[in-house]
């Protein structure tokens, strides 16, 4: 029996995989608080301060994005998200010298009365963007800061839409690699 909320997530994600940007945004916005809550809870258990879990949330979102081809729409999306988050938590803890394994049950289990503080940015995305190539920076800035669509960005930068998508995708992969490398 899947949680109705997760069924909604699955519907959105399935639509997103068909190229529906609105559904994808709904999905990402809906799962982020969930990931954040789980990350905060797990990281707190290992005595990590409040700043770190937002990194893990961003890293997990990137992984969800880059690895979304591994989700099978016939399977529930909750466990898939939980395993991705758990892997990112382990990466983050390991980078700081912990040797830990996080039991999957702890990540799946959801506690209702979890109160939350104001999340903060551990790692400023604009600072990380400085490590990207100039074209990638232009594209990410145009799309994220200035809010243009992929098509408009392509027109502004005199590129094809596909080239923008490819460059954006590469930029996201580099961001993920920066997280993995733990440049802090």
């Amino acid at each position: 029996m899947t949680h109705p909320r997760e069924q909604q997530w699955s519907v959105w994600m399935a639509a997103a995989l068909k190229g529906d940007e609105v559904a994808y945004r709904h999905f990402l916005e809906a799962v982020t608080p969930h990931l954040r809550m789980l990350a905060r809870r797990r990281m707190a258990a290992y005595g990590d301060d409040n700043q770190d879990h937002e990194d893990v949330v961003q890293e997990a979102l990137l992984a969800v994005h880059l690895k979304r081809g591994t989700w099978d729409p016939r399977r529930p999306i909750g466990p898939w998200l939980s395993v991705i988050l758990r892997n990112k938590i382990i990466d983050a803890l390991r980078r700081r010298g912990h040797r830990v394994t996080v039991p999957i049950d702890d990540v799946i289990e959801v506690i209702a009365d979890e109160r939350s503080g104001t999340p903060t940015d551990g790692q400023d995305i604009s600072r990380m963007m400085e490590t990207l190539k100039p074209v990638q920076q232009d594209i990410v800035r145009s799309i994220s800061l200035e809010g243009f669509s992929v098509r408009d960005t392509a027109v502004r930068l005199c590129m094809t839409e596909n080239a923008v998508r490819v460059a954006l995708h590469r930029a996201l992969r580099s961001l993920a690699a920066i997280y993995r490398g733990g440049t802090r």
Binding site: G19, R25, L61, L62, D121, L145, L168
Partner: peptide, 19 residues
């Protein structure tokens, strides 16, 4: 818990457009 998380929100913004 959906607070003012400019970095994460911005990330979501980028990711959504790469659907």
């Amino acid at each position: 818990s959906r607070g003012p998380t400019s970095g994460t929100d911005r990330l979501i913004e980028i990711l959504a457009k790469d659907a």
